[in-house]
Every structure is written in structure tokens, then in C-alpha cells.
Amino acid sequence: MTIKEQQDNIIADFEVFGDWMEKYEYIIQLGKDLPLIDPTYKTDDNLIRGCQSKVWLHAEMQGDKLVFTADSDAVITKGLVALMIQVLSHQAPKDIANADIYFIDAIGLTSHLSPTRSNGLLSMLKQIKLYAIGYQAKSVQQN
């Protein structure tokens, strides 16, 4: 699935929720279901510091796809991280670098991406893009 298709799927999933509680219940469940990051990757180097909650993000190439694993000490942040990973993991670095991320807005969680929220999600998106640009540059060099 493309990044766009992944986002459209999530938007469709969220359309069924009647109120904020159902929405957050789902995010919390996603947070609980997110496979834990390999503890060896839960290092300070992989830590994205938000003011409130911590997010760890690890990136590695598998074939020509960039794969992300992540964790957070706050479950709602972790659920949002899971959504971000669902959209952007297992994609080509070039596609990740160029991706337009619109689903957070469309599902009514824009405030979580605001810099003032300081939950690390915006920093995480920036870091994902940086990894993608980095791996893209590396593959260009190798070719």
C-alpha cells in the first residue's frame, strides 16, 4: 500500500467513531498493541525528547524499504506513534521524504501535531523525514 492509501484507510477507520471517547479508546488500544521496540534500540541516541512524554525511534533498511520501530512512555502518544508508523514504515525512503502527511488533520487530532503540545509527535515526524532523506542520499551515492 502507498503512503496515501495507508492514510486514507486510517481516515476511513476513524469515520466510524461517534465521539472523542471512542476515538481515544482506539488510539489507546493501538498504543497497547504496538510491538515494543527492541530494548537495545531504546537508547538516548534514539530518544526524541518532547517536554511531556518520551518517544524512541529506530530506523533500518530492509531491502529497498525503510522500516521504523518505536516506543513511548505515554500510551496515547504511543498510539499516535503507531499510526505514524502504519503510514510511513515499509516505504521507500524517497516516498517517505516526499510524503504529504494529512491524516492527523483529517482525523481531528491536529492539536497533537502542534509544537506547543510538546508530546514529541511532531519531532518524531521530522526525525522520520530526516532518516528518509539520509537513506535516500546514501542510496543515490551507492548508485
Partner: peptide, 21 residues
Amino acid sequence: QHHPSDVGVLLDQQGIAVRTG
């Protein structure tokens, strides 16, 4: 064991302003 920020986000959804952190 809940993270304070999770509680804060859910209180905000209910119109209740507290500080977490």
C-alpha cells in the same frame, strides 16, 4: 502506572485544564 500526559490529554478532552509534567 499511567503517564501524566495521557491523563492530561483525556481531561482536556472534557474541558478540564490541569498541568502535567
